[in-house]
Design a binder for these strands. Sequence first.
DNA 1: CCTCCTCGTGGAATCGATTACACGAGGGAT
DNA 2: ATCCCTCGTGTAATCGATTCCACGAGGAGG
Lengths: 343, 343
Amino acid sequence: MAGIGIKDVAARAGVSVATVSRVLNAHASVSPAARERVLAAVDALGYRPNTLARSLRTDRTRTLGLVISDVLNPYFTALARSVEEEARALGYSIIFGNADERPELQDHHIRTLLDRRIDGLLVSPADGGSPLVLDAARAGTPTVFVDRWIPGVDVPVVRSDGRAAVRDLVAHLHGLGHRRLAIIAGPAATTTGSERVAAFREALAAYGLALPDAYIGQGDFQAASGRRATERFLALSEPPEVVFAADNLMALGALDAIRARGLRVPHDIALAAFDDIPWFVHTDPPVTAIAQPTDDLGRAAVRALTDLIEGRTPQSVTLPARLVVRGSCGEHLTTDTTRRSDA
Amino acid sequence: MAGIGIKDVAARAGVSVATVSRVLNAHASVSPAARERVLAAVDALGYRPNTLARSLRTDRTRTLGLVISDVLNPYFTALARSVEEEARALGYSIIFGNADERPELQDHHIRTLLDRRIDGLLVSPADGGSPLVLDAARAGTPTVFVDRWIPGVDVPVVRSDGRAAVRDLVAHLHGLGHRRLAIIAGPAATTTGSERVAAFREALAAYGLALPDAYIGQGDFQAASGRRATERFLALSEPPEVVFAADNLMALGALDAIRARGLRVPHDIALAAFDDIPWFVHTDPPVTAIAQPTDDLGRAAVRALTDLIEGRTPQSVTLPARLVVRGSCGEHLTTDTTRRSDA
DNA sequence: CCTCCTCGTGGAATCGATTACACGAGGGAT
DNA sequence: ATCCCTCGTGTAATCGATTCCACGAGGAGG
């Protein structure tokens, strides 16, 4: 029923299937007359090649898999969007998998992506040691890490370096008089989870400030964990003056917790976040954040992956993040650097 | 190289490929001994069936296509997440396409989804008359509309009805003394674009209020259009007292415009939005919004589609939306009905 | 005029699964 | 003992493309 095949086209055009295939793939030589008739037949029948059959034969799907950590996180959806856009421009399709920050769900998606014989894999690993990711990379599936990576795996990495921006942030906070600074970290098993803490600690050290364990909240990059960590901070006998959330969702959770406690930002406690999102302009108060060049990251990741697939030598890329000061840490000293929401 | 096939498994297990296939598909009768050896071989070789070949033969991919209007819109990502979750529970995979509210991009994705021979299509059409969607539905691809639909096409629709909630909203606004109410509409070509205006107009009529053309802003469900429409409202000689944005992104744009103008919500102008998102709790001020039961919509849509695919009779579903009052329209009278961000 | 190449073309193998059909062995009924 | 079913299994066709190889026609060069 729903089956117009290459044979039907061949019959209508009065040629063999080989010739039809050659026309469709701009292969070898085909006479203008035959090409004409084939194209006419394709058109008349509304023929579309069966990509399953094609891929089975050629062992290429022109499809990339992208496993993102959390679709509900605006940072990752922005990343996904730019990845898809660049891939489309390069003639590839993207199949997404949403790991929801759960390693087993990540593995599920990687498994089904590999089963679909994608040409390459783009991952921001939800944990440090997923055996499947490692297997995939070792087994020869072209793989690129984006945002997060797994140390010791020889795979290109596209990410942004937030250290300078974190230093700027700490300078800003110190300048406002804050001395007791806390962080809500991501999972230690993720690079972004541990690196941001390290960067924060280093930056504090430059001002002779320590980062006591009680001021390190353990989160999982999701809102609920940000709320829990913040509640714990607020219950301390000496609560921090500033909470720095390692991603935007945990910052949301922190706001929830602060609000539930009846406190005000920044008067009672200051807040800053990693990852900038359009809503931060309009929160109460506007949130000071570290912005990543999301679109560039997505583009670079796709380019690295297609380079790998097509036999060129891929480049790891590290782009700088930058601090965007708003009002959530106190007195707003600089000129307004807020972003428009469609920036 | 990267090719462990069913033949290899058969050879190692000392059986034919037919037997291997039967074991893997829990088909007909296989002796326990043979089954045992096959499973052992599968395990030892780390064999994974080639889904391309399988689908080519069986003409089923156990994959559904979901074309959403905009990945950057939290409403749609929440929908996508629940769709994927339910599909996974039912043994299906999802391939997403992001239309970015652009009909031609929507068609591109529908095209590639059909080329991939998905078993069914879930669409929230970006415009009213995409020929491809119609073709797909008519050509026999099981199709379900979600959120938005195209009138006159005989396809199940899963959506929510906001009329009651809009009436509640208008009652709330009227009760606060507002009389000049404006709306930022979505594209007229989308059902959600026109219906929300109609519901708003009806509700106003119940209070003897009119909806002049000048108070209908034409948006496209994206932030920039919300900003433009709001700027136009503010430039009127008699600006509205309330702006009701037909989706959350246009509400974001409206906030941008209001803020740029140096005005305050709700003191200078009130704001309400269709679609509730976690950030609305923390904006300045918290935004009164109409919440859709996103998770239920996603689940119902997948069930309707799989019913269609598997030969059961699918059900169209309409679920009610509900008003969530916060502070953005003025004096906060009711008890706090804000949502926690992980609700 | 004969040979040789090139060009356009078609036949058929192939990718890796599923599945209709055939077949032999074994058990129960008569 | 004979017949017939059932059960487990293998052989081979098939899905819809791509692509190697062979082949005939026609032009160029000797």
